[in-house]
Computed example of a mutant assay.
Amino acid sequence: MKILLVDDSFYARKFFAKILTNEGHDVVEAQGGIEALEIFKKGGMDVVTVDMLMPDMDGITLIKKIKEIDRDALIIAVTADIQEETKKEAFNAGAYAFISKPVKPEEIKRVLSQLQKEPYSIFLSPDSRDAFTELINIAMGKAAEALSSLLEKKIILKVPHFEMIVASRLYDYFEGNLDEIGVAVQQRFSGIINGVATLALPYKDAVSLVRVLISANKELERLTPSEQTVLAEVGNIVLNGAISILSNQLKTRLAISIPDVYIKKSGKDVLNSIMLYCHDSEHALVLLSRLTISEIEILSYLIMLLPRVGILKLLESLNA
Rank of each mutant, 00 (worst) to 15 (best):
V212A: 10
P202Q: 08
R290S: 12
V210L: 13
L291S: 09
L213D: 06
K264C: 09
I181A: 10
L209P: 11
E219L: 13
R188K: 14
L271T: 00
I237D: 00
T229Q: 14
L299F: 01
L250G: 05
I237M: 06
A242M: 11
A206V: 12
V212W: 05
A242G: 02
V207Q: 07
H279D: 09
I296H: 11
I258M: 08
V270N: 01
P307D: 09
Q228N: 15
K218L: 08
A184N: 07
L213K: 05
N194P: 05
N236L: 00
I256W: 06
I293S: 01
L271I: 01
L223N: 09
L302H: 05
K218T: 05
V207N: 03
V207H: 01
S281C: 13
N240L: 03
T224V: 11
L299G: 01
K218E: 11
A216D: 13
A255E: 15
Q186A: 11
N194T: 13
M304I: 13
H279E: 09
R211P: 09
V238R: 04
H283D: 06
Y262S: 12
P225R: 06
I293Q: 03
Q187A: 02
N194M: 08
N217V: 13
N248V: 10
I256H: 08
S294M: 03
N272P: 01
L250P: 04
L246T: 00
N248P: 04
V207M: 02
E297K: 14
Y277W: 10
V234L: 11
I263T: 13
L302I: 10
E233Y: 13
S226E: 13
R222Y: 10
F189Q: 00
Q249C: 14
Q228P: 12
I263S: 13
E295D: 15
L287A: 07
F174D: 00
L305A: 14
E221Q: 14
L223Y: 09
L287Q: 05
K251Q: 15
V234N: 01
V185F: 05
L302E: 01
E282K: 15
L213W: 03
T229S: 15
K218D: 02
V238L: 15
A216I: 11
I243K: 01
N194E: 14
V238W: 04
N194Q: 12
S208P: 05
Q249I: 12
A197T: 09
L287Y: 05
R211I: 14
A200G: 12
K265S: 06
Y262W: 14
L271M: 02
S300P: 03
S208K: 10
I256E: 04
E227A: 03
S266E: 10
N272Y: 08
Y262M: 15
E297Q: 14
N217M: 14
A184F: 05
C278D: 08
S294G: 06
L213F: 07
R188L: 06
S215E: 12
L213S: 07
I245N: 06
V270T: 07
Q228L: 14
I274T: 03
G182F: 01
V212E: 13
T252W: 06
R188M: 11
A184D: 04
E180C: 01
L231H: 07
S215R: 11
E233P: 09
N194R: 10
Y262R: 15
P202A: 13
L213V: 11
L239M: 13
P202W: 06
G182I: 01
R188H: 06
E297A: 11
